[in-house]
Amino acid sequence: MPESYVIETRGLLKRYGQQTVLDDVDLAIPAGAIGLLGPNGAGKSTFIKCLLQLQNKDAGTVSLLGNDIDAHGRETRKRIGYAPEQDCHIPGMAGCEYVTYCGELAGMPFEAARQRAHEMLDFVGMGQERYRKVDTYSTGMKQRVKIAQALVHDPDLVFLDEPTNGLDPKGQALILDLIERVWKETSISVVLSSHLLHDVDRICDRIVIIANGRVLAHDSLENLKKRRKAEAEIMITQDRERLVQAFQKRGWSYSSLHNGNLRVEHGETSLNPLLGMMREIGVSALEVRESPNALNELFNGITSGNGRSPADSPSPSPPQSSSSSPSSSSSKNAGEPPAFPETKQ
């Protein structure tokens, strides 16, 4: 198995009693900054825990950094860092002592671990607080120490589970900056698990979307953003009938949304033919908006509760807020037709 895939799973299955938390997950993820996106309870943390053998999987195989985790779990984890979502410090230990200890647990000699612990605490922006007991830290400091302990042994792959949880916007920005630097400056692959699109959108170059234990999408961020359905949503108050007749004449299927807007499947790669047609028949709309890109569409779909990919669902996504102007919407070109869910790269 080539190590070009930092994570590879086949048929990964995890159940809690009758509930299936991970359902036959097949993934092959190359090195990079990987965003694991999904709503709370989607199975992101369980997925990471199964990869790291923190939870026993019910079926399937897992390879990390090219090594079968079942056969070489302990040795493979030497090269992996993990910052869990919850607090996990050891009571009574000072920050630098805790990170040093984690370095030793990961296989570093004491002297190297101590030096490296201070380097990592510098890296995450901890000052003299490092000499205080971790029990007394604020949420932001605890998050930083968690990241420091995940990096102290210089891993090749780091899992960060909801690292911005509980932080104020400034703290979130600092942590995201830090994570971005880890991948960009060191080429350490980072798996960032989050339920916030903004977090992964900002720093990840590859996205895995999980909902209800299934991988809904896996692709590069760039590709996901390019992909759109050839649809448009039109906000119109006058000449609605004329527009509908024009759609029928051209054979475009359409539907009326709850908010009174029209959704039309124009089948074109951009909005220009639709806008041209509206000009020809003399219909002016308040807003013409192309369908959201695949990333947004998937994310909106799962966060609105259906947890299904657009390909699974023929019904349109809930309407978006109509704040953008027609000009800005129509300036974007539509990409390839959607092909979700894609679970193998």
Partner: peptide, 16 residues
Amino acid sequence: NDLASQAIVIYNSKAL
């Protein structure tokens, strides 16, 4: 203490 503080997760995620 390790169970109460969830530090057990850290041990299990290391090379142990």
